[in-house]
Design a protein around this nucleic acid. Structure first.
Lengths: 361, 361
DNA sequence: TTGAAAGCGCTAACAG
DNA sequence: CTGTTAGCGCTTTCAA
């Protein structure tokens, strides 16, 4: 049977001081004589005393814990986001309470309630929907500073935003320059920012090139690999299949590749592919896949710092909004579409194409 | 300015009952008249009251939170472990406090102290060292049930163990049967179980085949991709380089592949490779990589259930020990070593080789 | 069945 | 500089 945990009372008794004085030493209060301070510190060591954070929270009215609610954190990039958050928080002696919503509204609601009960001091999150009333209300009810990740929001909260629109515009332009015309964009439902922005970027690129996108090639439903897989299968089974696919979601690439492989198609000879998140697979696969990427570790650090800033500083400063760029990394997964290649091999003349600037290697 | 959070006092007042009665309703105590119960429930709804978990913890002496300390959780497989843990815990209304140690002793110590302060009710962890006195003492000091993940330990705690030894034995046998003789094993320091077991399995296989392993091909230092990269580079630069490489760590495969690619070698023609953890890269790469794998989601669920069992049941039952098998998944990354192939192409006779049974496809 | 009151471990305000 | 004390929000005796 575990003997009772040692409390500040025990420390006080052993150091032969009052409880209040022991507390003062613990909290680094100036007004304690050196001699007594030493005595107390001694007692703390001897007893291996560890302050009860629960009692401290109770008394101080804060928990020194922050919640982190994401769709999931199984994806390496999100995990690296979590790690960055954690590293910053650790330095400030905050604990991290993890909450994976699996993108389900009901679960989000439950988790928000649980976090509320725990009286977290702050919250970093991305929600399944941006408009849902209940969700918004639950978040409000927490009455704590919030940092939103890649969701568009009322102007009142801090947020980290990824510039998907410019990223996708760049990717699509690149494909257009390779003479692709039937470019499919697979991404999540447009009621969240990343998907909506990607669709805008897609249209931007076509418009900029003075073209109209083929209808029906923008598929917005889910960010999952599963959706990428099924949709790719469907698209590639069409009469006039797309010649290029953009996997618009950080988990989607494996699904798309699986489908392409299942169809027995080669990348990039038969179909070009651009991912929307870097990974070992994209980097070391054969061929390596060109991707749009941004640094989640940087995002994580920024998110945590934004939150700490509010927690420790001015809770009423105007909200910050940090936007990060998506970088197009060209690797080996894109080539001119097969019909063009054929024409070329046939020796037909072609107008020169210039690679748009701003595309990095 | 956030108006004060509503407490059980407010609920009691509004329902015109005593605080104690309100509490009873909250806790589903039988002895409350239906009428009053309704009134209180009504008040709870009206006020959107959320019990203060901090105060509850204080009073009850438990926190309904468990700590999860891993080397890191950036790896997809570990993240899926975390997710499984979380899913089980959520059902039991426990929160998860995440702690990534980055495999650093000092950080582990700090995190353990922080978790102790928070009065977590239980802990799931893997430590950087199995023998370290301070670590052991800190863990003891927590005085809570512990589930250890893939570490060998005093017989007193619950543990989940992966049978690396049998797994590696199987993998090495497979390679020996392909006529490999110079088989390198890259893994972490032998002072933790997975590495130690892998080395044993490696020796087992050679012994079983009546052979002696070439010296200097067991490289035990670190589980990182970085180590895999550097060591592979070194090994492949030798006079007599290994013809097969086993990446003995869940993060190591990308490093090994990177090095192989950098050397301009082909898999499996020039060198055979076996990974020790499944991944998108292993599954969808070209060629797909043969791996030893086990199910981390199952492990996570088991870990959480083991812990809950203790938390909610008999805290003094004898410790459980769950061992999971590693399955060898044969894909396309292994072939006979180049010299053998050459000999073969030359038409030389060869003794028949039988594929050892127990190797799954 | 209900109310009153003690006390979990701690911090901070107040007195000395 | 130090000791005493109230009270954070809640659960749980103990009485009624």
């Amino acid at each position: 049977m575990p003997r009772d945990r040692v409390t500040i009372q025990h420390v006080a008794k052993r150091a032969k001081v009052s409880l209040g004085t022991a507390s003062r030493v613990l909290n680094g209060n100036k007004s304690v004589s050196p001699e007594i301070r030493t005595r107390v510190e001694r007692a703390i060591m001897d007893l291996d005393y560890r302050p009860n954070a629960v009692a401290q929270s109770m008394r101080r009215g804060n928990s020194r814990a922050v919640g982190l609610m994401l769709r999931e954190f199984t994806l390496p990039v999100l995990a690296s986001f979590v790690r960055a958050v954690q590293n910053v928080l650790r330095g400030a002696e905050y604990s991290l309470i993890l909450a994976g919503s699996e993108d389900q509204r009901q679960r989000e609601l439950e988790l928000l309630a649980a976090l509320s009960s725990r009286r977290i001091d702050g919250l970093i999150l991305t929600t399944s929907s941006e408009a849902d009333e209940d969700l918004l209300r639950s978040r409000e009810a927490l009455q704590v500073p919030v940092v939103l990740l890649d969701r568009s929001v009322p102007a009142s909260v801090d947020a980290l935003l990824i510039d998907h629109r410019a990223g996708i515009r760049q990717a699509v332009s690149y494909l257009l320059n390779l003479d692709h015309r039937r470019i499919a964009l697979l991404t999540g439902s447009e009621n969240v920012r990343p998907a909506a922005e990607r669709v805008l970027g897609y249209r931007d690129a076509f418009e900029e090139a003075g073209m109209k996108p083929a209808p029906d090639l923008i598929r917005t439903e889910s960010f999952t690999a599963e959706f990428g897989y099924k949709e790719t299968l469907t698209l590639l089974g069409r009469q006039a299949p797309p010649t290029a696919l953009i996997a618009g979601g950080i988990a989607m690439l494996p699904g798309v590749l699986r489908a392409v492989r299942q169809k027995g198609l080669r990348v990039p000879e038969d179909v070009s592919i651009i991912g929307t998140c870097d990974s070992d697979l994209a980097e070391l696969g054969t061929p390596p896949i060109s991707v749009l990427r941004w640094d989640y570790a940087v995002l994580g650090r920024a998110a945590a710092e934004l939150l700490l800033d509010r927690l420790q500083g001015d809770r009423h400063r105007p909200p910050h909004r940090i936007e990060v760029e998506a970088e197009l990394v060209i690797r080996g997964s894109c080539a001119p579409p097969p019909d063009v290649s054929r024409r070329r091999r046939g020796g037909q003349e072609r107008t020169t194409r210039k690679l748009r600037s701003g595309v990095s290697a």
